[in-house]
């Protein structure tokens, strides 16, 4: 059993390494949301009070959408927030459960892998062939670059979860490391409630990430 502990150790380390990256990315998305609020108010004031709308406001908003839309994706994955139907998976236990987890994660890895690569090509085209926004003619490539960057983090998180699920599939009695606990509908509802209450809870409660306690 020494080997498996070693495995869990390395898996745990990979998990711990990824957590601050995901948090930082989500925090960036959060900042983008806050700035969108500030920019919106500034636009109203500047336009209605001074008759001088902010040049390229719509372009700026559109470019910043990528930050809000993608940077939090890996964070969502870690805490199991991406929507799925729990009707069947919620009833599974042991190996069957981990098999379902492995299947779902592999599907995720496939599509996110494709999107890292081809989202990257989409960025590369706009970087090399030239691309600018409709109004203020701002360059588009920084915004498009966020897709391969954010999805790479997502891909790594999915890899950790795949590793964790396979480890559990081999021996369901082990302490789970680097996986999401499948929640029953009631637990999912509890998360919704915590969400509604905002930050009154430590996010660690919602996931089994971190050191796997």
């Amino acid at each position: 059993m020494i080997k498996s502990q070693e495995n869990a150790g390395r898996l745990g380390a990979a998990d711990r390494l990824l957590v601050p990256v995901e948090d930082a990315a989500n925090l960036l998305a959060a900042c983008a949301i806050f700035l969108l609020m500030v920019l919106g108010v500034a636009q109203i004031v500047s336009r209605t009070v001074f008759n001088a709308p902010i040049e390229g406001y719509i372009d700026l908003v559109e470019l910043s959408m990528a930050g809000m839309a993608f940077l939090g994706a890996a964070y969502c994955q870690r805490i199991g927030a991406h929507i799925r139907m729990e009707l069947l998976v919620g009833r599974l236990h042991g190996r069957a459960l981990w098999a379902a987890e492995i299947f779902g994660t592999v599907v995720g890895l496939m599509i996110i892998g494709v999107l890292v690569w081809y989202g990257g090509e989409h960025f590369w085209r706009s970087y090399t062939l030239g691309d600018s926004t409709i109004d203020a003619e701002l360059p588009v490539w920084p915004s498009k670059l966020l897709v391969p960057v954010a999805f790479s983090i997502w891909f790594l998180r999915l890899s950790v979860q795949l590793w964790g699920s396979m480890r559990m599939f081999v021996d369901p009695q082990r302490d789970p490391v680097g996986v999401i606990f499948v929640k029953g509908a009631a637990e999912q509802a509890e998360d919704e409630m915590h969400d509604a209450m905002g930050g009154d809870i430590d996010e660690g409660e919602a996931s089994q990430s971190g050191d796997g306690k």
């Binding site: 989500n26 925090l27 998305a29 959060a30 900042c31 983008a32 949301i33 806050f34 809000m68 839309a69 993608f70 940077l71 939090g72 994706a73 964070y75 969502c76 805490i79 927030a81 991406h82 929507i83 969400d195 905002g198 930050g199 996010e203």
Partner: peptide, 14 residues
């Protein structure tokens, strides 16, 4: 609040 908003936003956009 912002972190939760970011999370929900990423989830809906995904």
């Amino acid at each position: 609040s912002l972190m939760e908003s970011a999370k929900l936003t990423a989830m809906i956009f995904a």
